[in-house]
């Protein structure tokens, strides 16, 4: 049930990639990415590990530098000199494969840290915001626990809540279910689905083909640092054009991941 009736094309693009190249030393990881993503659009990036989809996401909030091209978020430069990193990281939230919760802080403190230190919210207000988020994800009773007492799925949901506490306008989800026990994937994806329903702009790198097919407005198949094919879920899964995409889908099907 894709939210295609949003007509993302009506608004100016929210995230823009123009001729983006990225090198890690001799490795050419992104080889000319051109893509516009609209407000409220959900775009999933699929492809084999190492194809550059995680790197692409990290470039959006300037965790990685690019060597050529331009990335813009909400009309502002997100690459090159003169990036307003403070602005960028306030409108862009990111959730990582490895959760990356702060292990020396309680769940509550994990969520309130950035709002109090970056947004300078009063402690009580940040706390209220965190509690509301935790209640929404059904983890209010874990507020005082340390992350290592939580299951992987719970940790990842806290990580999402931590990003949401900054009230971002776009979320980058970097293979957020890849490190999870298969039984715990569902609870995390359910939370992502809620975000989708609320109209959050989402860029999601994932191996969950079924989920991507369900929620994405568009799917980008990446191969060797290129956007090999971009299309609606139907186009990508029913009528793949690119040979690499076809062989990728074949392997995914054989591995019964679909």
């Amino acid at each position: 049930m894709a939210a295609t009736d949003d007509q993302p094309g009506q608004l100016p693009p929210y995230v823009e990639f123009a001729g983006v190249h990225k090198h890690y030393g001799p490795n050419h990881v992104l080889r000319g990415i051109d893509l516009d993503i609209g407000h409220h659009e959900v775009v999933c990036f699929i492809g084999a590990s190492g194809c550059g989809k995680s790197t692409l996401l990290r470039c959006v909030n300037a965790l990685e530098e690019i060597q050529q091209g331009q990335i813009r978020v909400a009309g502002e430069a997100a690459s090159g000199p003169g990036v307003d990193v403070d602005f960028l990281r306030r409108v862009v939230g990111i959730v990582f494969q490895g959760f990356n919760l702060f292990p020396h802080m309680t769940v509550l403190r994990n969520i309130t840290l950035a709002p109090t230190k970056v947004l300078k919210l009063p402690e009580a207000e940040a706390r209220a915001r965190a509690i509301a988020l935790l209640e929404r994800i059904g983890l209010a009773d874990k507020a005082g626990e340390y992350p290592d007492r939580l299951s992987g799925g719970q940790q990842q949901r806290v990580a999402i809540a931590r990003a949401l506490a900054m009230e971002p306008e776009v979320m980058l989800l970097d293979e957020i279910t890849s490190a999870l026990d298969p039984a715990l994937v569902g609870e995390v994806l359910a939370m992502v689905r809620e975000l989708v329903d609320e109209g959050m702009t989402i860029l999601m790198a994932t191996h969950e083909m079924g989920f991507a097919r369900d929620v994405a407005n568009r799917i980008c198949f990446m191969s060797e640092g290129n956007l090999a094919e971009v299309g609606t879920p139907d186009e990508i899964f029913q009528d793949p054009q690119d040979e690499r995409l076809r062989s990728f889908l074949r392997r995914v099907t054989e591995a019964r991941r679909m």
């Binding site: 909030n61 965790l63 403070d86 990281r89 306030r90 862009v92 939230g93 990111i94 990582f96 490895g98 990356n100 919760l101 702060f102 292990p103 020396h104 840290l113 950035a114 230190k117 970056v118 947004l119 931590r162 990003a163 900054m166």
Partner: peptide, 28 residues
């Protein structure tokens, strides 16, 4: 480094990342 990445992506500055995330964990 992923701890620093998480802190920075939440908008914490380099100094704040050291003070609230890296040093408290390192001290242990």
């Amino acid at each position: 480094w992923s701890q620093a990445a998480a802190a920075r992506s939440l908008g914490l500055s380099q100094g704040q990342t050291l003070r609230y995330v890296i040093i408290p964990q390192g001290v242990r």
